[in-house]
């Protein structure tokens, strides 16, 4: 097991090094694409805390993603840039607050109910921004100026520059991974997994299961908010589509596709999902059917649900275990 962990760490460090080197070689298009993938990876990892570790299948995670984007759009003055130092924490705090209120309600339910209620609350938020003037209606809001990042008077990063933004996202991705791993390694994290396996037993052992689940829900919401904030900065606008249930479905798919309950799996899932999107909507390959790329996506999702329940990382682990077993036999 320890050998396994060391190997994993080595692979992850290699992946981060590769990501850090990428903008030096990659074109503008691919640097932007990888930035988007890393943002979605943060989003997917935040959901993994709920789905993979706590056993809470949320189908409304896009609510936090969208709320943070809108929070940024509403906080930024129209003709000048705002500071990232306070807009990012403020956007995440808004998500944490929304998670606290809705979490207190949705966590009263379980199973199928939980899935439906999380979806319904996300949809409620969708209507708040879709139907009201302050949210810009169905057109959304443009963010004309990207936030600035200054220490005193000197600018640390210029987010208008592609590679500066890329490295900010990469640093945050690594930070979120490390924070989540730290959380999951703590007593709190182990208690969450315990709740997933057997909530009654955890309660009998004296753990306040409801409060633990609520805490996980709030943390997950705030981290999803971080990814939504970054996405809004990258694309320069927000519209209600970012809260739509298709967004919630997509991120759930990333988690499963990559392998839930592993943290790095959902990041792989985000990569695979976005790449598939690019592939299926490639006109050079699929011609007129590129327009209907969701068909291929839908079929893939169905096949993953049926035949790849542990996701891509499960596949790798199985392969690794077989290899280990073969080596053990050899000895």
């Amino acid at each position: 097991m320890h050998a396994h962990g060391r190997m994993l760490n080595a692979i992850l460090i290699a992946a981060v090094v590769a990501l850090a080197a990428f903008p030096l070689a990659g074109s503008t298009f691919y640097t932007q694409l990888i930035t988007k993938i890393m943002i979605m990876a943060i989003f997917a990892m935040s959901l993994d805390l709920l789905v993979g570790y706590t056993g809470l299948v949320s189908f409304g995670h896009a609510a936090f993603f969208g709320l943070a984007g809108y929070a940024l759009a509403l906080m930024v003055p129209k003709y000048e840039a705002a500071s990232l130092w306070w807009t990012l924490p403020a956007a995440m705090a808004a998500c944490a607050a929304f998670a606290l209120v809705t979490g207190a309600l949705v966590l009263r339910t379980r199973g199928i109910f939980f899935i439906m209620v999380t979806l319904a609350f996300a949809q409620m938020l969708f209507f708040v921004f879709h139907d009201t003037k302050f949210g810009g209606g169905s057109d959304g809001i443009y963010i004309y100026n990207k936030p600035h990042l200054k220490l005193g008077e000197t600018a640390l990063l210029d987010l208008e520059k592609l590679d500066h933004f890329y490295y900010l996202v990469l640093v945050l991705l690594v930070a979120v991974y490390l924070v989540l791993r730290r959380i999951l390694g703590s007593t709190f994290g182990h208690a969450l997994v315990g709740i997933k396996v057997n909530e009654h037993r955890m309660r009998a052992l004296g753990f306040p299961a409801f409060r633990y689940k609520l805490a996980a829900y709030v943390i997950s919401g705030a981290l999803a908010g971080m990814s939504g904030y970054l996405a809004a900065v990258q694309f320069g606008f927000v519209n209600p589509e970012i809260i739509s249930w298709h967004q919630s479905g997509a991120v759930l798919m990333m988690v499963i596709l990559g392998g839930m309950g592993t943290l790095y799996g959902p990041a792989i899932g985000a990569f695979a999902f976005v790449m598939m999107q690019e592939l299926f909507s490639n006109q050079a390959w699929f011609g007129a059917y590129a327009k209907h790329w969701q068909l291929a996506m839908g079929v893939t999702i169905i096949l993953v649900a049926l035949y790849l329940p542990q996701g891509l990382s499960g596949l790798l682990q199985k392969f690794g275990r077989r290899k280990e077993a073969a080596e053990a036999e050899h000895d």
Binding site: G249, L252, M253, I256, Q294, L295, M297, G298, V299, T300, I301, I302, V304, A305, L306
Partner: peptide
């Protein structure tokens, strides 16, 4: 997941 795929 499967029924979401069906929607698409």
């Amino acid at each position: 997941l499967l029924t979401y795929g069906l929607i698409l």
